[in-house]
Design a protein around this nucleic acid. Sequence first.
DNA 1: CATTTAGCTATACGCCCGTACAGTATGCTG
DNA 2: CAGCATACTGTACGGGCGTATAGCTAAATG
Lengths: 224, 224
Amino acid sequence: MLLSFDSELHSFKDGKVTIAPDPEDLTARARIRDAALRHFGEHGFERATIRGIAETAGVSSGLVRHHFGSKQALREACDEYLSKVLSRLNDQVRADSHPGTVNYVAVARTTLGPYQRYLARALAEGSAAAVFDEMVRLSEEWLAVLDRDRPDPPLVDRRIRAAVGTAMSLAVPVLHEHLSRAMGVDLFSPEGDELLAQALLDAYSHPILTVEAATAAQAALRRH
Amino acid sequence: MLLSFDSELHSFKDGKVTIAPDPEDLTARARIRDAALRHFGEHGFERATIRGIAETAGVSSGLVRHHFGSKQALREACDEYLSKVLSRLNDQVRADSHPGTVNYVAVARTTLGPYQRYLARALAEGSAAAVFDEMVRLSEEWLAVLDRDRPDPPLVDRRIRAAVGTAMSLAVPVLHEHLSRAMGVDLFSPEGDELLAQALLDAYSHPILTVEAATAAQAALRRH
DNA sequence: CATTTAGCTATACGCCCGTACAGTATGCTG
DNA sequence: CAGCATACTGTACGGGCGTATAGCTAAATG
């Protein structure tokens, strides 16, 4: 389940970073990283403890420091790992399907599966900036294809729209708990997922504003 | 700027809660609560310290415990306070304007102004559930009005759509930092706000899916 | 074989934080 | 005036945490 493709198994000692040759997973280092992803995701960065992470990884707490240097560096390693998973996912999608047919962000959200909780926490805590930026970039590419079919040109820069769309997609995992409570279903369950999909379809296909109201509002914005 | 209408200045001692008569603000209790809102909002619940909060409130750390009992209880008092601000805001909007003309959630977001950072943090950390639920309720009322003008009935329960919409609106303050970085403007600045408004208008008035694609997708969902 | 290097453990240090509590001043009540 | 509750301070305690470091083992290196 836990994908891994570490060619960069480096360790930390006395402030220097060295490269170890072993590309095999099940490495203690990888186990620690996976445990950290889980703990950070479940309890948040502050509440998660190095000792707790070490325990689930089946190693001593000292080894965590040996490999990652500090708690903050461990967090950054997790972010970097997620970035790598995302870019690999991106390559795969790009190879498999025609551009514009898939909502990258939605795909990323679902495929990031076990890391979703971590990603949500990290983003809310201000971390994982690279992952967010990458998702915006992907969303931008996707929008570029969609824009070709639009009758009138959009007023707003594509990057802006991509950023807003990305943020809104990510609202689902970030606010997962509240959303599930309000909807009465666990969002991560099959029924919850379907309900969400239907709600999004409804929103996407039925604009809240009429086109007339929207253009009037835009005109008002431009005047002001 | 900090509204306050405390008729409930109660203090904590030995597990019991008593009511004090003074409705005047500038009370130490109110100052502590305001400082807590700021500290929790800026640093998050875990990183914020009682001593730090006490210092900005200009009181001793012991007084914080005296009034609120524990850090967790202080957090809950903040949540409750926000709930009250929201409901008061709601009454005001309801009195001023016709129903359906205003996007409640958007109004709430902006009017909650100084508390936005706290609200965002609290929601991301799983707190402030009552505030979220209240916003869903308001959004539901708003949708009820909009639905009257819709040609075909929506497939999805109104509450579900309200919840999803609320979550997406809240993505803005919650992911404020990342969003601002990706957009190249601070979202809380006037330009950022206008950009965001335009992007939302664009999304609201130009459905990402054509109606045909959406109905096809919905049919596929129903088959599956 | 001698020496180094990486992986790993165990223990200890020191800080910071939430909490507890004793104590003081002030003002209200009967 | 006596008694008591409330607002508030200062200090102290205990624990948990990140971090540091010494030391062990085993494999790699020359």
